[in-house]
C-alpha cells in the first residue's frame, strides 16, 4: 500500500519530464536546425572535402591525404602563415599596449569634454566597415595625393611608398588595422579597468605607492583576466585577417601581405580548388582552436570556475 503513492508520483514526474523534454527541444529546434544546416553540416563537409580534389566542374576525385602533403610542401602556405603570424603578433602588441595606455589615461578624472572627444575618436573607426576603411586608406597612403605622405614630408620625413614597397606594405596594413580596431580593444580594456575598485588605489596610495607602482601592482593584476581575454580575441581576429589584404593590396607586393585566409579564399573562389582550400581552412581552425583552449585554461586558472 505504501508504495502506491510513490508509483503515482513517479508516473507523474515522468509525465512532467516528458513534457519538459518536449518543450526544451521545441524551443531550441529553430536554432538547432539552422545550426545543423549552416554550421555543423558544413563543418563536417569541410573535413570530408579536404580528402578530395574538386574544381566544382568535373567530378570530385578522392585523394586521401594528398592535400595535406601538398600543404606541407606549399611555400605559399608557409609564407602566408608567416605573414599572418607577424600581423597577428604586431596587432596584439600594438592593440594591448597602446589600448591599455589609452584606457588608463581616459579613466583618469579628466575634463568631461576631453573624455568624450577621446572616447568617440578612438572608438568610432571600429564601426566603419572594412570595405570603406580599406578604400579610404588606400587614398590616404597614396604617394601622389595622399595626406599621410604629404604631412610626413612636411616634417622632414621621406615616407616609403607604403603599399608598393614589400618591406612596408605589411606594416602599413598593421597600422590601418590598428586605426580601425583599436576602439574595440580600448572599450574592452576601459570596461575592465572600471571594475578595479577605487579603494585598492586609495589603500596603495596611503602605503606610499606612486602612480607607476599602483599601475604595476594594483591595476595590472586585477586586469590580468581582461588583458588575456583582449589578447586572445585580438589574436584570433587578426589571425583571420582578410579584407585589407584583399581590397588594398590583394596579397602583394610580391606576396608580402598575403594572409592565410586570403590564400584560402583565392584557392577556393579564384582557382576553384575547394578540396585544397578546405585543407587550408582546417589549419586555420586548428590554430584558432588551440589559442581558444589556451585562453579557457588560463581564465579557468584565474577565476577558479567557469
Amino acid at each position: 500500500m505504501s508504495s502506491a503513492p510513490v508509483a503515482v508520483s513517479t508516473v507523474r514526474r515522468r509525465g512532467i519530464e516528458g513534457r519538459s523534454n518536449l518543450a526544451g527541444w521545441f524551443f531550441v529546434s529553430p536554432a538547432v536546425l539552422l545550426f545543423i544546416v549552416f554550421i555543423a553540416g558544413p563543418f563536417v563537409a569541410a573535413m570530408g572535402l579536404s580528402l578530395f580534389s574538386w574544381d566544382l566542374l568535373t567530378p570530385a576525385r578522392f585523394v586521401g591525404m594528398e592535400n595535406f602533403t601538398r600543404l606541407f610542401g606549399d611555400a605559399t602556405v608557409w609564407l602566408s602563415l608567416r605573414n599572418t603570424f607577424v600581423f597577428a603578433f604586431a596587432s596584439v602588441v600594438t592593440h594591448i599596449v597602446i589600448g591599455l595606455a589609452l584606457a588608463v589615461a581616459v579613466n583618469r578624472p579628466l575634463h568631461k569634454v576631453v573624455q568624450y572627444v577621446t572616447r568617440s575618436a578612438i572608438f568610432f573607426p571600429f564601426l566603419i566597415s572594412w570595405a570603406a576603411v580599406s578604400l579610404l586608406w588606400k587614398y590616404v597612403l597614396d604617394p601622389d595625393f595622399g595626406i599621410a605622405s604629404y604631412y610626413l614630408g612636411r616634417i622632414g620625413i621621406t615616407p616609403p611608398n607604403w603599399l608598393i614597397d614589400p618591406q612596408w606594405a605589411l606594416p602599413a596594413l598593421i597600422g590601418i588595422d590598428w586605426w580601425h580596431t583599436i576602439g574595440y580593444t580600448f572599450v574592452i580594456l576601459l570596461a575592465g579597468l572600471q571594475t578595479v575598485p577605487g579603494i585598492y588605489h586609495e589603500a596603495a596610495k596611503i602605503d606610499g605607492a606612486n602612480a607607476w607602482q599602483r599601475f604595476w601592482h594594483v591595476t595590472l593584476p586585477i586586469m590580468a583576466p581582461t588583458l588575456v581575454f583582449a589578447m586572445i580575441i585580438t589574436f584570433i581576429g587578426a589571425f583571420q585577417i582578410f579584407e585589407p589584404m584583399r581590397i588594398i593590396t590583394d596579397g602583394g607586393p610580391s606576396d608580402s601581405t598575403r594572409s592565410i585566409v586570403l590564400y584560402l579564399y583565392q584557392q577556393a573562389f579564384e582557382s576553384f580548388q575547394v578540396g585544397y582550400a578546405s585543407t587550408i581552412a582546417l589549419v586555420v581552425f586548428a590554430i584558432v582552436m588551440i589559442v581558444t583552449l589556451l585562453q579557457l585554461r588560463l581564465s579557468r586558472r584565474w577565476m577558479g570556475h567557469d
Binding site: 553540416g41 583571420q240 577556393a268 581552412a281 584558432v288
Partner: peptide, 11 residues
Amino acid sequence: MVPVQLTVIPL
C-alpha cells in the same frame, strides 16, 4: 571556435 572560413566553402 569554428571560423567562418571553414564553413563558407561547403556553404
